[in-house]
Amino acid sequence: MLTLIEHQRAMRDLIRRDLVAGDPYIIAAAKCVGLEVTRDTIRNWHRFRLDRNCRLTSAILRQRGLYARVFTAVEESAGSPYIEQLSDDFFDAAIALGDPLITSVASLERALNGSDETLVEWPCDPYPVLAALLQGEEISDFPAEPHTTIVADGSFRLT
């Protein structure tokens, strides 16, 4: 029989890393429907909270078919129960894609959620992009026209 710390480490490794320790209980846990229900509950809860807290970034990622990729990266690293940290990880993963418009949207939303005054560079006029995302409409191909926004106190304006 496993000690308490061995049991808990084995359960963690099972849920988060799909590693099955050679213990009869852990082997049974690996085969039970509760494992998938637990994993899906964790995923759905993270997705639900990210969609509310990172609405714009979630929307553009979904439009570009990149949401699952970014979400998976966040899930693999998720180490905090706090939405602020989860959101930061989500923005980081979105920005790491290297798409200039996604980077702008994620940077703007991170700044809106934060308290520091922040400059955000855009490859195009941000207003039609943000309007489309907020209204759930497809983002058109806007003319390349660099803009800069300044974000402070939960709002933003063009510089």
């Binding site: 359960m11 963690r12 849920i15 509950t41 809860w45 180490g79 129960p81």
Partner: peptide
């Protein structure tokens, strides 16, 4: 909800042992 400081994202029950 944590093991070695790592958050599980869920709450689990411990075995009901003397330990």
């Amino acid at each position: 909800v944590m093991v070695d400081g790592e958050h599980l994202g869920t709450m689990l029950v411990p075995p009901r042992t003397g330990e």
